[in-house]
Design a protein around this nucleic acid. Structure first.
Length: 422
RNA sequence: GGAGAGUUAUCCGAGUGGUUGAAGGAGCACGCCUGGAAAGUGUGUAUACUCCUAAAGGGUAUCGCGGGUUCGAAUCCCGCACUCUCCGCCA
């Protein structure tokens, strides 16, 4: 969430930036500021009364010790009067709750680099690479390819759990493992610490990264224990540093993790969800960074270049989009999406999203460090997929199919797969 | 799942109603000492909100979390979370 003091001091700038997102409820900004004003007024009053009560209580203590019961009783009566006055200041709690409810509705401010558009068509292509294959035959979509060679069984997943929970088998399972291994090795070689986090988190963690209260319906909820299945490893990874003041020597924090991700995808349907395009459980290797504020955009560029090289090594045609204001995630200040071209479906599939959240997440989670002047300051958080597996798999299969029915595997995956085709 | 014990500042740890934001030790920072270092020694060492134009300096809150009793709570009471020990179960 945004910092209240910042909103108060830069109200016009905040509104101007929010309008880049086409955020409609700009009146929330003014409401927040006026709530904050009355909150501070009440707080001064409450603090002053409490100060009197505290002083009187100390005096009562010493009066009792000297045996001056009458004096003590007189002071007690005064304290009682002050406490009655303090009851009115309970208003603060109401105001603070209102402020909080507003704060969680205000999205992050887009960085100046964010294009002003409204829909996905307005996203800016910043780079393209790779070659879209030309087939001399009719290319098959991945759901046919995996069914023919028994790599993935969607029907079996329906039986075991439900739709969107595929069963990978044989070489299909092996290829998943090979990709995970390759991605993790690639990330750790670049200095990311490998982490295996819990796949379920408590309410505080889900709240910390912003899944709650906003996207409650998107997570699977184990209600008996009140745990949430993680929709991405970003949640446990970032929460590792919740309520921490990170030592300067530990910065920048760079972590990577492979986890399954669980998403209810409530409301999704139709052809976009066919095959591997949209699943309830899928595998993803994530990268997360926590850095000093002045270095976060440098870190973002570096993460984008890192993911780009990984996709290049998989020999897939790709493009990098800078998301426009209307298409960005709620908590992000700047996002680059990576898409690969799926040759049989003839469409671009999003395989990674790399974002700088600036201090939006770290403010909520109180992830801080001491700056050069010894002052406590929020860090910036960034994360990205490196990479999400299902759509990469879809593109690999579709793009590398041969007329005879084989599938070529890019050289980068040969060592971990132990084969050059499937 | 059952029974018991516990949760205090960066860490260890004292503290069972009244100058306790909290003893003591360690760590860390700076200084003295030293040719240099160690040892020794001195000083300092939380976070959030808030008042003040700002600094300086105040005020309030925080001893797992939330609530209650009281003039006053780390200390008493209730609820919850977590940790440890024993028993049970178990990959």
């Amino acid at each position: 969430m945004l910092l209240v003091n910042f909103i108060r001091q830069q109200a016009d700038y905040v509104k101007e930036r929010l309008s880049v997102r086409h955020f409609k409820q700009l009146q929330l900004v003014d409401e927040l500021i006026s709530l904050d004003e009355s909150r501070r007024k009440w707080q001064v009053e409450r603090d002053e009364l409490q100060s009197k009560v505290n002083a009187a209580s100390k005096e009562i203590g010493s009066l009792m010790r000297t045996g001056d019961t009458a004096g003590a009783e007189k002071l007690k009566a005064e304290v009682a009067a002050w406490k009655q006055q303090m009851e009115a200041t309970a208003e603060i709690d109401v105001i603070e709750k209102q402020m909080h409810d507003i704060l969680v509705q205000i999205p992050n401010l887009p960085s100046p680099l964010v294009p002003a558009g409204k829909t996905p068509e307005d996203n800016v292509v910043v780079r393209e690479g790779g070659v879209v294959p030309a087939f001399g035959f009719t290319a098959k979509p991945h759901w046919d390819l995996v069914a023919q060679r028994g790599l993935i069984d969607f029907e079996l997943g329906n039986k075991l759990t439900g739709s969107g929970f595929p069963v990978y088998r044989g070489k299909g399972a092996r290829l998943q493992r090979a990709m995970i291994q390759y991605f993790l090795d690639y990330n750790t070689a670049a200095g990311y610490l490998e982490v295996q986090p819990p796949l379920m988190v408590n309410e505080a963690s889900a709240y910390g990264t912003g899944q709650l209260p906003d996207k409650e319906g998107q997570m699977y909820h184990a209600t008996v224990d009140n745990f949430y299945l993680i929709p991405t490893s970003e949640v446990p990874l970032t929460n590792i540093y919740r309520d921490e003041i990170v030592k300067e020597t530990e910065l920048p924090v760079r972590m990577t993790a492979y986890t399954p991700c669980f998403r209810r995808e409530a409301g999704s349907y139709g052809k976009d969800v066919r095959g591997l395009n949209r699943l309830h459980q899928f595998d993803k290797v994530e990268i997360v960074q926590l850095v000093q504020p002045e270095k976060s955009y440098e870190a973002l560029d570096e993460m984008v270049a890192h993911v780009e090289r990984l996709i290049q090594s998989l020999e897939l045609p790709y493009r990098i989009l800078r998301l426009c204001g209307g298409d960005m995630g709620f908590t992000s200040a700047l996002t680059y999406d990576f898409e690969v071209f799926s040759a049989a479906q003839e469409k671009w599939l999003e395989v990674s999203s790399v974002s700088n959240f600036e201090s939006y997440q770290t403010n909520r989670m109180k992830i801080r460090h001491k700056d050069a002047h010894g002052k406590t300051q929020l860090l910036h958080s960034l994360n990205g997929s490196s990479l999400a597996l299902p759509r990469i798999l879809a593109a690999l299969l579709e793009n590398n199919q041969t007329e005879k029915g084989g599938i070529r595997i890019p050289a980068a995956l040969h060592p971990s797969l132990g084969a050059d085709s499937i």
